[in-house]
């Protein structure tokens, strides 16, 4: 009989004898992984949505009057003085009128009585990709609003702010659920192993007395912890994937959700979640065993 044969036999024996508590721990680990992974997935997708919205982000600076060529150059220099931008485009009053008329389509007749210069001239500024965080866009907007001849700066402030705070809230939930995952994995597994140890104290004491090494006693429990982590997190991820697919199919019709492409975790993220769960469960198991072996 070799070490691993003896250890695996012991694992089988432990699982057979304590399967109700093992099963409860397995479910708890799965649920913890599911909760954490769910919020993390939502957070990830929200970040993607944010990036996508950021790609379309532009600041519109409405001007008091139409700038001449020289003033356009002055304004361009002032804008570039803040930071590099991707694009600056001047829209004349006439151009604004044409755009508006085109947007009205068949109803453009309503503009017939309006003067062709009733809309203000504006500058469309597309910031660089690295200028996308809210604080920077806000700073940029404040800067632009202080330029001479500026009426107003628009970039969908309210919506972006709400989105920003939503993602902040999500990141806090992800952190909390991550904490929950750590607590449940370590403490539940540690508690289950402790119960097993208490239930089999006589046997473990005897094993020590007949010369079992600490590894011989400890390894089966460590393997149990690893199995809890592996199977628990796998079930959690599979459940989340099923939920994700269901939501995708259920809400695949026209609607706000169809505007964005939601994606599941990359394989390396799944692998990382599995490994972290396994490590946490192994730590829980190991700590219980160490307490016993020190006794």
């Amino acid at each position: 009989m070799n070490f691993w044969f003896a250890v695996l036999r012991q694992v089988g024996r432990n699982i057979r004898q304590t399967w109700p508590s093992q099963f409860m721990t397995f479910l708890t680990v799965s649920l913890s992984v599911l909760i954490f992974a769910f919020f993390y997935l939502v957070y990830n997708n929200m970040l993607n949505v944010g990036n996508k919205l950021g790609d379309d982000l532009q600041l519109i600076v409405y001007l008091e009057e139409e700038p001449g060529i020289e003033m356009q150059e002055q304004l361009r220099r002032k804008i570039l003085a803040f930071d590099e931008v991707e694009n600056i485009r001047f829209i004349s009053k006439l151009e604004a009128y044409e755009r508006f008329a085109n947007q009205l389509g068949e109803n453009r007749d309503v503009l017939n009585d309006m003067p062709r210069d009733f809309l203000p001239a504006s500058i469309e500024v597309v910031p660089m990709k690295d200028l996308r965080s809210l604080s920077q866009v806000k700073l940029f907007s404040d800067y632009l609003s202080k330029l001479p001849g500026t009426l107003k700066v628009q970039y969908g402030q309210d919506w972006i702010e709400r989105f920003y705070y939503f993602t902040r809230l999500l990141s806090i939930i992800v952190l909390l659920s991550g904490g929950l995952l750590i607590l449940t994995s370590v403490f539940m597994v540690s508690y289950t192993i402790r119960l097993t140890i208490l239930g089999r104290q006589a046997e473990l004491e005897l094993l020590k007395l007949v010369g079992a090494t600490n590894n011989y006693i400890r390894t089966p429990f460590l393997i149990e912890g690893i199995l809890q982590g592996l199977f628990g997190s796998t079930l959690g991820i599979i459940s989340l994937f099923s939920l994700f697919q269901w939501i995708k199919i259920k809400f695949s019709g026209p609607g706000i959700l169809s505007l964005f492409e939601f994606s599941f975790f990359q394989p390396q993220t799944i692998f990382t979640i599995l490994v972290i769960s396994i490590v946490l469960c192994a730590v829980g198991s190991y700590s219980s065993m160490q307490k016993f072996l020190r006794m």
Binding site: A202, E205, L206, K208, V210, G211, T213
Partner: peptide, 17 residues
């Protein structure tokens, strides 16, 4: 552990499973 493997003990209270 190795030393204990070389010692066989029959305890008064048996210590059986």
């Amino acid at each position: 552990a190795k030393m204990r493997q070389k010692i066989g003990v029959a305890y008064q209270d048996f210590k059986l499973l």
